[in-house]
Simulated assay, not measured.
Amino acid sequence: MSGKVTNKAILSSSIFSINLVTYPTNHSVMQHIDPVQQGRYYKLNFVLIKPKAGGVFKCSKCIINLFNRIYLFRPDKYDHSVSKIESGKRVLLSFALNL
């Protein structure tokens, strides 16, 4: 049984946003790069709830990876993905900055 991803915008502007994102069981994010019109795009993700199984974040180059829970990376330059969540859910607080 798979549900929908919920993406709740806490703050949103043209250069900075904060979102609370919940990924349900059976969800995955295929490898991709986030295109931006111009500038440099940074994401700082805090994994608040880790799935019981699966849901592993992969990035071809992280600026910071602390305890596989806090990630700072350039989604506009480096491939990133999340493996299938086998059990439980993945909840993140995501800060995005486009300079």
Rank of each mutant, 00 (worst) to 15 (best):
K43T: 08
K8R: 14
I18L: 15
K4G: 07
C59T: 08
I49D: 06
E86C: 04
S17F: 04
I10F: 07
I10S: 02
F46G: 00
I15Q: 14
S14R: 14
N19F: 07
P51K: 10
L72V: 09
F57Y: 14
V91S: 01
N45C: 07
L44W: 09
S17E: 14
S14I: 14
A96V: 00
G55L: 10
S83T: 15
V36D: 02
K43G: 00
R69F: 01
C59D: 08
V21L: 12
K84T: 15
I85F: 02
Y42W: 12
S28G: 02
C59E: 06
N65P: 00
Y71G: 00
L72H: 04
T25Y: 02
F73L: 09
S81W: 08
Q38L: 07
N98P: 00
L97T: 04
P35I: 14
Q38K: 14
I49N: 02
I64A: 08
L48R: 09
K58L: 05
M1Y: 08
C62R: 02
L99A: 00
I64L: 14
S83I: 05
K84N: 08
L99P: 05
I15E: 14
L66A: 07
V56D: 09
L48Q: 09
Y23W: 12
V29P: 04
Y41K: 06
P51S: 11
P75A: 11
I85T: 05
N98E: 06
G39N: 01
K77P: 02
L11S: 13
C62E: 15
F57C: 05
H32C: 07
D76Y: 03
L66H: 10
K52I: 15
S12N: 15
V56I: 15
K89F: 09
S87L: 15
R40E: 13
S28M: 10
I15Y: 11
D79L: 15
L44G: 03
K43V: 09
P24N: 11
D79R: 11
L20M: 10
F95Q: 06
R40C: 05
R90N: 02
N98H: 04
A9W: 01
M30V: 11
V47A: 05
H27E: 12
M1L: 11
K52G: 02
N98A: 07
S2R: 09
V47Q: 02
A53D: 13
L93D: 05
